[in-house]
């Protein structure tokens, strides 16, 4: 990680997130923004490979920035930093391309380890979001645009199994024990689920664009 963007309007939180980012990735250069407009313009000027984005900002919804980041820097890591982990708040951002989320009220040490976890491929996934994902893939899987994509878009049986366990509130470690695979494999499945969520979102967007005559 070389350059990080932090979008956060509260100075104390901004400071705390800067500290977390720099602890997690020593030597990272951090650029802070406190508005959606500011963040969007800075994305157009500089390159970032990490973004910590708050969702509720004075001039709008951070999800817009998540979307812009994801399309401009597909290889970057986008993490939502919020105080609300309910699916209604988070799901749109996850669909827009966020790879994980942090709860800002947690202790900074914890945030550091969680951030590292996301980059190492252990994104968090609450039961509520797991349920939401199950619904999403159950209902929306026919939306896949092409044959090739549909393969990626549908969950594998193992991924589904992991998701079902997560929806029951079982921890990643316990899931590994319960279905007899390593903790890392469980994490990989979770990462894949995130990725497929992004693909379905993109597929949907393409379909939508087609309908509107944009493509």
């Amino acid at each position: 990680m070389k350059v990080a963007l932090i979008l956060e309007d509260m100075p104390e939180s901004q400071e705390m997130l800067r500290e977390v980012a720099q602890t997690a990735y020593p030597g990272v250069r951090v650029r802070c923004e406190s508005s959606v407009a500011g963040a969007l313009s800075i994305i157009n000027q500089f390159q970032f490979d990490l973004a910590l984005i708050d969702l509720s900002l004075p001039d709008g919804d951070g999800t817009t920035v998540v979307e812009a980041m994801a399309s401009r820097f597909p290889a970057s890591m986008i993490v939502v930093a919020t105080i609300f982990d309910d699916d209604a708040h988070l799901f749109p951002a996850l669909r827009a391309g966020a790879q994980g989320y942090l709860l800002k009220d947690q202790a900074p040490e914890q945030l550091v380890s969680q951030l590292r976890g996301i980059s190492e491929g252990h994104p968090p996934l609450s039961p509520a979001i797991a349920r939401r994902l199950l619904d999403h893939f159950h209902v929306e899987k026919p939306l896949a645009v092409t044959e090739v994509e549909s393969e990626y878009v549908q969950l594998s049986p193992r991924e589904r199994e992991v998701l079902v366990h997560l929806a029951r509130g079982i921890s990643i470690a316990d899931i590994g024990v319960e279905i007899g695979i390593s903790r890392h494999t469980v994490s990989d499945h979770v990462k894949n689920i995130y990725r497929k969520l992004k693909i379905t979102s993109r597929a949907e967007a393409a379909l939508q664009a087609k309908k509107l005559g944009l493509l």
Partner: peptide, 18 residues
């Protein structure tokens, strides 16, 4: 109730982990 238990369990999980 099933979902409520899942939420409680997940929260307890993460707190105990910390």
């Amino acid at each position: 109730l099933r979902n409520a238990l899942a939420d409680w369990r997940a929260e307890a999980n993460s707190r105990c982990e910390v």
